[in-house]
Structure formats: structure tokens, C-alpha cells
Design a protein around this nucleic acid. Structure first.
Lengths: 192, 192
DNA sequence: TTGGTTAGTGATTGGACACTAACTTATCCG
DNA sequence: CGGATAAGTTAGTGTCCAATCACTAACCAA
């Protein structure tokens, strides 16, 4: 039996939860599945977190944080077009290498909407704050132009959805995402 | 007791399912909830549809169809910028008036990804085909330019997600979505 | 080594849920 | 009218699942 500190365990629970919730969403994922992935008994999760909801929330927050870090790292020391290209490439690589993260993003969006619909604004506030940080992580390197940033994020969202739907890389719908001569806008479509 | 033909009932089941699945997704929605909304006993759903999955599939398909129709109707007889503006306005109105349809769209995307992940490609094919029809409904009126269409769809997706997250209309993240010279809301087309 | 704290488990419970089976009632038509 | 058919119901089954409880095993400091 390998013992860990509660903090370390919580960490692995969050990682496991990100993968599991990514596939099944909140309701489609059992705490048992998460526990199994962690290698720990199911009841023990409830000693590390107060509820299933809390686990989901932690996973969502982590997902946003990870994504923001990708943008920050990619654009470090760059600005304007160079930053844009770097961030686009980094993001494309992220969703190619780690589809779970893409999935978890989408799961987070639908969960927020559901929470808001029943009057729970706490989850929403966290997600809006987290997403805004991502927005800002792109905004500054891109020259702090709202329209530019919005366009960048818009292309990113389209890429998310096309990838989620499973269109093969050579499908027509990806066409308009090819960069022309140089990279003027949008997360770059070098899909692996 | 009001009796309907099975066909009519199926129709109301699909409508009800769109609303319920929109909120809770596949796993978060019970057939009981759908039945209640229809005003019919829960087991009766299984005489109208073979399974819960079939109901979800029908709801997804209908959602895509409805969305396509919105574009088609809006752009009827128009082309170029006029068509673009008409479609953008119509779509903005759609997601403002009927948030369920927006939600159901997102639910469809995550469900497709989940289905693909477990090797079920049937649902994915239907959704990809349906979404392509939407894409084409925008493509032709916009002058059959792939980049133009892609940009249009990208802005639409960003709007979807911002709306789902519940950012209030006056929030900064909406800024770059204002049309410059032309009238207000909507997926914006030509970025100079 | 002993006493306290922290990590972790097995058993269980109460509720929800998809789906089946068997029965009832409205409606249409000859 | 009368009976066939289609619309609908009530009751029930097996399964799954979040959360609780009472307990055991490892670590640690004096």
C-alpha cells in the first residue's frame, strides 16, 4: 500500500477526475470510476472532497488554469503576430495531444449553463473568471486589441467544436482555417 | 384524456426532449422528466422510441435541422453582406429567444465526442452531416468563400460559448463582437 | 512502546432510473 | 352496435450510485 499525503492524493484525484468527467460529463461519471483511476477506494474520495460536485469544480478550475498556462508559456517574450502564431500553434498541439482537456472544456461550458439555469451562480463566477484570465492571456500579447483577441478566441472555439465532432483533418470544414501566406488571425490549424 | 396519433406524440416527445436534454445532457436527464413534460406516462416513451438513446438522437437531429432552417429562411433571396447580416441577426435572435436550442447544440457536441471515444460512429456521422448542412446553408449565400464562411461560423461558436457561460451583455468579452459600421449583434463577417 | 494522528477500507443504505410486462380505455370503421 | 386496433396506464425488476459509518493500518513524536 502506497501512502500519500492528502494533498498529493487530492492532486491525483483532480487529474483523474479531469479525464473521467471529460468523457462522461458530470452525471455520466461515477465517483467509483474516478476512485478506480486513482487507485483508491470510492468512499475515500469523500474524505478528500466534500462532494462529487466539489470534485467536478476542482477539475474544471484546473482545466481552465492549464489552458491559460499554455497561452502564457507560448507567448512569453513575444508580441503581435509572433505571439499569435506561437499561441495558435501551442493550442493546436494541446488539443491534439490531450483531447481530454478539450472535452473537459466543453463539459465545463455545459455544466455552467446548467448551473446558471437552476440559480447556482457560484460555479459560473469561477468559470467566467477563469475564462477571462485566458482571454487576457491572449489579449495582451496580441496588442490589447479587443477585435483581434475576439477573432483569435472565435477561431479557437470553432476548432474546439470541429475537433469534438470528429471531422477528419482533410474535411472541407477545416479549409478556411488554413493560414494563407502568413498568420494573420486565429489559432493555427496545424492539426497533427 | 387527449389522445394523439403516435406520430404526433413522437413529435411532442422530441420537442420536450430537446428542452430537457438541453438542461441536463444525456445522463442528467431522466426519461421520467421528458414524459412529465409531454404529459404522458414514462413507460409509454418506450413504445414511441426503442430507447433513451434514440430519443436523444432524434432531439439532436431536430436541433441541427431547426438551426439550418433559421439560416436558410434568413438568407432567402439575399447574398453577400446582406445575407450575412440577415443570418447573423436571425441567429442572435434564435439564441436569445430559445436558449434551449443553444444548450442542446452544445450537448450534442459533447455527446458526439463521447460516442466517438467509445467507437460509436453512427451518431457522429449524423451530426457531422447535419452540421455540414448548416455550414453549406451559410456558405452559398456568403459567396461560397471558405474563409468567409469559416469566420462566420467561428464567431457564431464564440457567441454560443459566451452565452452558455452567462457573461452579461455588457461584459468586455463581447466587445470585439460588435459590428463596426453596420448594425449591432451577431457573428461578424469581414474583419477588414 | 505507547499514544495520537492521518491514510485508507468494507459494508451498507436509500433513492433514482431505464426498461418490461400485463392490463385498460378510447377511437375508428364495417 | 360491436369488435378490432391503437393509445395509454399501473406495477414491477434489476441495476447503479452518492454518501455515511464504523473500522483497520501506517506513520510519528516523546
Amino acid at each position: 500500500m502506497v501512502r500519500m499525503s492528502a494533498e498529493e492524493r487530492r492532486e491525483s484525484v483532480i487529474r483523474a477526475a479531469m479525464s473521467e468527467f471529460a468523457r462522461g460529463g458530470y452525471y455520466g461519471t461515477s465517483t467509483e470510476a474516478i476512485a478506480k483511476r486513482v487507485g483508491v477506494s470510492q468512499p475515500y474520495l469523500f474524505r478528500l472532497f466534500p462532494s462529487k460536485k466539489a470534485i467536478f469544480l476542482a477539475a474544471s478550475a484546473r482545466c481552465l488554469e492549464d489552458t491559460r498556462k499554455v497561452f502564457e508559456k507560448a507567448s512569453e517574450g513575444l508580441e503581435g503576430e509572433a505571439a499569435l502564431h506561437a499561441m495558435a500553434t501551442a493550442y493546436s498541439r494541446l488539443i491534439a495531444d490531450d483531447p481530454d482537456k478539450l472535452q473537459m472544456q466543453l463539459q465545463t461550458y455545459v455544466a455552467v449553463a446548467a448551473a446558471e439555469a437552476v440559480g447556482d451562480h457560484e460555479f459560473g463566477e469561477m468559470v467566467r473568471a477563469g475564462w477571462l484570465e485566458i482571454w487576457e492571456a491572449a489579449h495582451l500579447p496580441l496588442g490589447a486589441d479587443a477585435r483581434e483577441t475576439t477573432t483569435f478566441m472565435a477561431f479557437g472555439m470553432l476548432i474546439n467544436v470541429l475537433a469534438a465532432m470528429g471531422y477528419p483533418a482533410e474535411h472541407r470544414v477545416w479549409e478556411g482555417l488554413q493560414l494563407p501566406a502568413r498568420p494573420p488571425e486565429g489559432p493555427e490549424p496545424t492539426r497533427a
